[in-house]
Amino acid sequence: MKRVYVNEQWCLGCHLCEYYCAYANSGQESMVKALKDKTIRARIKVEEKDGISFAVNCRHCTEPLCVKSCIAGALTQKDGLIVIDQDKCVGCFSCIMACPYGALMPNEEGVMQKCELCTTNSHMLPVCVSGCPNKAIVFEER
């Protein structure tokens, strides 16, 4: 399965991936409308320290701890992709505690959201990857 991988050597810490992600999952047509005067909740997060940076999103683990920890059965593995059924999520935060990458976070309503590789929004391909100016994240089979 194709996943998003990080080439931290090339990450500039520009945070564009976050903004593209937030926009992609906003359902809005314009980025300005989607993000102006809002605190964004991107499903990818740029980690930075000592001049090194990289962007992390869900790794779509083959043995996903989040799925195991979910008490409501909201998280499932579908053809390798880890998806969330937000209707089932009860907001218990168990997945957040379990995920070693910090790939899950609550949305404005307190329901969990996570990266589903842009399969559930209208973009089809990960926009964080296409928006990255330096190929610091790539979407590929490894």
Partner: peptide, 13 residues
């Protein structure tokens, strides 16, 4: 100003 979303990408770059 109507378009800027304060992402600060310009600042960083």
């Amino acid at each position: 100003k109507d378009k800027c979303i304060n992402c600060r990408v310009c600042e960083r770059q």
